[in-house]
Design a protein around this nucleic acid. Sequence first.
DNA 1: CTAGCAACCTGTCTGC
DNA 2: TGCAGACAGGTTGCTA
Length: 283
Amino acid sequence: MPELPEVETVMRGLAPAMQGAVIARADVNRPDLRWPFPPQMAQRLAGQQVLQLRRRSKYILADLASGESLLVHLGMSGRMLVSGDPLGQFVHEHPAAEKHDHVVLHMDNGARITFNDPRRFGAMDLMETATASQHKLLSVLGPEPLGNDFHEAHLIAAFEGRNTPVKSALLDQRLVAGLGNIYVCEALYRAGIHPARKAGRIAKTRVASLVPIIRDVLSEAIKAGGSSLRDFRQADGELGYFQHSFDVYGREGESCRNPDCGAPIQRIVQSGRSSFYCRQCQR
DNA sequence: CTAGCAACCTGTCTGC
DNA sequence: TGCAGACAGGTTGCTA
């Protein structure tokens, strides 16, 4: 579900309730999500102060005083909801437990963090903070799209010789980390590139143009608190509102927003996922 | 090595 | 109302 802007939004919402606070107790209500939880997860979390929260791609990392880091991925349907914060910034009442509340962190400041994930494509793991970047899930990731290592030369090299559609290439987390279906569709529309075009056969200047466009789309979405489709919520339960700014995603049959165009937005399926685009504006 | 596709799971919506 | 089928923001791991 959540792509980079949604994960960033969730992390920012968690930070005031978690950073500097101690996990008094962790309730682990099932043995696994997508994979089994690490051994003794509840015990390894209990009593640990959260030194810092950070994000890598679509993963949230909580660095603990023990020298371990908790890694969280929200999968397609995962949520992290904060309640009972003593500063009154969040939903004050603790909500009743709901179906699919798989892990609950009780903070010593009175806050409660509830991880709810109906589809269970999410994941949690523990690792040594010092070697976190070598973790199996993190070591394969490409550069952060909002960081300095993501630049024109990188993307041009990454696309070089690739016979795969540009849509698939941008979803490949090894080339650039954090993009998902929505923001790839939106970026390709802004760049005027057809999603089915082979990555290796796009002019370098057009590939280069994707870099600032991707940065802009993600930054705007973060500013808007992410996109709320179906069940995405910020950590305080609020909705994001970037979905109102979509040019193409979910707009099949509606008019292209380019005032000189107005053609109906198309939907095609590429490797099992919907791509939305304007056949006039994207070539 | 690359590319395509099934699989993992539940919930929601549409059409008959 | 019931039921089948499609679809959903992600990622791994199989097969060709």
